[in-house]
Design a protein around this nucleic acid. Structure first.
Lengths: 343, 343
DNA sequence: CTGAAAGCGCTTACAG
DNA sequence: CTGAAAGCGCTTACAG
């Protein structure tokens, strides 16, 4: 790496002190009464030498790294990579970079990544917290580290978050199924105490009750994050063969994709033999003969709000907590509709 | 943000100079003959105070930020987000963080993101270069900034890269179609001079020639990155209605997904009425009644090699250029096969 | 209108 | 075996 040009280099060429160069390049020339002549010369030389400020040095002085840490379950999950993209755009436009890390839904890994990024002096975090990471989050609060939770939160902690109304969304999704007249509706979720999953299950139960059906635990299947493929196989088989389910609600995109694979693997037709509704978008839904109705989360808005809340907190503009709950809508038709429905 | 504990804090508590603390915590106590007693005390206090080194300060001194910049076309594209994940894992395991940015296949945007991350003193870059960014890349070389190109490269520049053999892969993909006896095979790619697209077209032509068919330009459709949806509509219609194509080769996952939407939109059956082969994986392929044969890139290997090559360069262990070309294989059956084919 | 100086939190050559 | 000091590239209060 070639030696980068510094303030001193410019100062030497122009024949002034680094103070003046710093003032001018930070547009504080006026208020520090730098003569327009030297200011002009400094700007010229800076351009000629292609000066790029060293943000590291600046950070050390200002105690601000102008970077934020983004910790999600897995950056390769479309839900999170789409989120990452909107967070990137939002952050860059406000002069912040984004450093990312994946937790794999594991609280030990989360803590490790968090510590790693802390070492890098990020100014704050956007975190999709894992199960059992309350202690870690509490520590952040204790250290007054700015952060905002996304996708999930903890009722026991008064932390900032940006989430969606999972209860309402799930209720809508399941009601959509029930309106077709089914009485035996299964659910597959992750085995997790995380609030968003709990609320998805609650929404499912509420929809059943509203339809005059008493929820039955045997229709609720939970699989673990790390071995969901094999457990999904078992769950789908049980729902279809033993519980005679007429429809299944899958609680995430990953679960829906895997569940549908299993359903097709068993040679079942959707929706004739087994109907389906899912949480989260997937590029795959557009392609089934039967379009998979699903809950579409406002990913862009979540990302933008998360950055906004975080930066407000970093800049100390934040009075009290910011707890933001957005609405997610059921999509029951492919988009763009005109392209796919015509001809 | 609470004040972080520094070396000085530890030094004060123990009653020694910061030098000793630094030596001990960097495991250079022995070689600097720090007494085991003070060393032990220092480690104790560091633990008690939960000391986390300030990487920013360290970076300023060492001129190493221990971070790398990853610039792709779009982090929300599954190809790149999967790549990002393997790069993250690889980088973290070597004590590097990853800062990312998207170029949207736009050379101006690329330059902007590059400058932005340069300001952050990243130690090097992993870049999927856009069309027309040769000048920017040349500048990196001139400045001796370590970097490695992925997915594409420029024949006119002797830069490090990790790519796959696009020519061979495309030839294999198209040959697979031709073996079924088709004679009119279309291709849809992006309108781009980027080498990987050129080689995918070349591979297509080679396959045709090998099968005794003279390539005809009218079967080659190119769409622009920014407006590919509408152009795809036109391309697919032309191929089907005017050119009477029997099969189409889509040159990326995005193109394949959009193309398939259009094909279905026209009510055509795959593969009976129009056959298809694609470049890149997509979660959607597993779900069609007819599994879409496609080229599967070794994403994990590409990411790992890219990090390896970059870090070697950063550490000056790199003699000459590293030009790595991996093989990509055609997948003509769903995986895991046993799950989907049985029952 | 301008410069010398301190300091952000580290590392490390040097002196003792 | 240990400490004082310089320096990484900035910013900024202060003196003149």
């Amino acid at each position: 790496m070639k030696k980068r040009v510094s303030l001193k280099d410019i100062a030497d060429v122009v024949g002034v002190s680094t103070s003046l160069v710093s003032y001018v390049l930070n547009n504080k020339g006026k208020e520090n009464r730098v003569s327009e002549e030297t200011a002009k010369r400094i700007r010229e030389v800076a351009r000629e030498l292609n000066y790029q400020p060293n943000q590291i040095a600046r950070s050390l002085k200002s105690q601000r790294s102008q970077s934020i840490g983004l910790i999600v379950a897995d950056i390769s999950n479309p839900f999170f990579s789409n989120m990452a993209r909107t967070i990137e755009d939002e952050a860059h436009s406000r002069n912040y970079t984004v450093i990312f890390g994946s937790s794999d839904e594991n609280s030990t890994k989360l803590k490790k990544v968090l510590d790693f990024l802390t070492t890098r002096q990020v100014d704050g975090f956007i975190i999709a917290p894992t199960e059992g990471c309350e202690e870690t989050v509490r520590e952040l609060m204790k250290n007054k580290t700015p952060f905002v939770l996304i996708d999930r939160y903890f009722e026991s902690l008064s932390a900032n978050y940006v989430i969606i109304d999972n209860f309402q969304a799930s209720r809508d999704a399941v009601s959509h199924l029930l309106e077709k007249g089914y009485t035996r509706v299964g659910l597959v979720s992750y085995r997790s105490e995380l609030i968003h999953f709990r609320n998805r299950v609650r929404g499912y139960e509420e929809a059943l009750k509203n339809a005059g059906i008493t929820p039955d635990a045997k229709y609720v299947k939970e699989v673990s994050y790390d071995t969901f493929e094999t457990e999904m196989k078992k769950a789908v088989r049980e729902l279809i063969f033993e519980d005679k389910a007429e429809a299944i609600f899958f609680c995430t995109n990953t679960l829906a994709i895997e569940g549908l694979k299993q359903i097709f693997g068993l040679g079942r037709k959707v929706p004739e033999e087994i109907d389906v509704v899912a949480f989260d978008q997937s590029i795959a839904y557009d392609f089934f003969e039967y379009f998979i109705p699903h809950i579409s989360q406002p990913i862009k808005e979540i990302g933008q709000e998360a950055v906004r809340v975080l930066l407000e907190q970093i800049n100390g503009e934040n009075e009290g907590d910011a707890r933001i709950c957005l609405k997610a809508k059921l999509k029951s038709h492919p988009a763009p509709a005109d392209e796919l429905k015509t001809a």
